[in-house]
């Protein structure tokens, strides 16, 4: 009886592990990322996911996680367990991912102190640079016109 119970537990734990390998909870680790209709970077976006949002997902396969709403690239998320309490605090020994979600570590507070001590550092020019971006639609037009990979196929 004892052997049977141990075998069941063994199988249960292994089964849990096996299913978790393809079905995971992923957490967004970038400020925002597109959820796409297909696992391609220029496929139409169906929604935008933001920092800290969690999704049940399968994969990754060829760099993409599949969620109920669409596909998210693996570079935008972590599949590790992350714990941040409702006040945004993380405990000692927090992982890099937890620090990102809590806005801790080297953060805006540290940047302010650094900027105050380094008046030559041109943060105004950095902010102007960081505002420069190209929309999905414009990038697709650019790719199609130039015969680039993103403009080919069925990415419409």
């Amino acid at each position: 009886m004892r052997k049977t119970k141990a075998a069941v537990l063994l199988l249960l734990a292994a089964a849990l592990g096996a299913s978790a390998a393809v079905a995971a909870t992923i957490t967004v680790l970038v400020r925002e990322t597109r959820i796409r209709r297909r696992p391609q970077f220029y496929a139409p976006a169906v929604a935008t996911a933001r920092l800290g949002e969690k999704f049940d997902a399968e994969g990754p396969e060829n760099g993409w996680y599949k969620t109920a709403r669409g596909y998210i690239h693996e570079s935008a998320v972590t599949a590790k367990r992350v714990r941040v309490d409702s006040a945004g605090s993380v405990g000692g020994g927090a992982s890099a991912e937890e620090l990102t979600l809590a806005g801790k570590g080297f953060n805006a507070q540290v940047e302010s102190a650094y900027a105050a001590g380094h008046p030559n550092a041109d943060y105004r020019a950095v902010d102007a640079m960081a505002r420069r971006t190209v929309s999905d639609a414009e990038l697709l037009r650019f790719a199609r016109e130039g015969g680039l990979a993103a403009g080919r196929g069925e990415d419409r």
């Binding site: 970038v30 990102t100 806005g103 080297f106």
Partner: peptide
């Protein structure tokens, strides 16, 4: 972390 890399990069 991702966000720390961002703040180091900004500086």
């Amino acid at each position: 972390s991702e966000s720390e890399e961002y703040y180091i990069g900004r500086a």
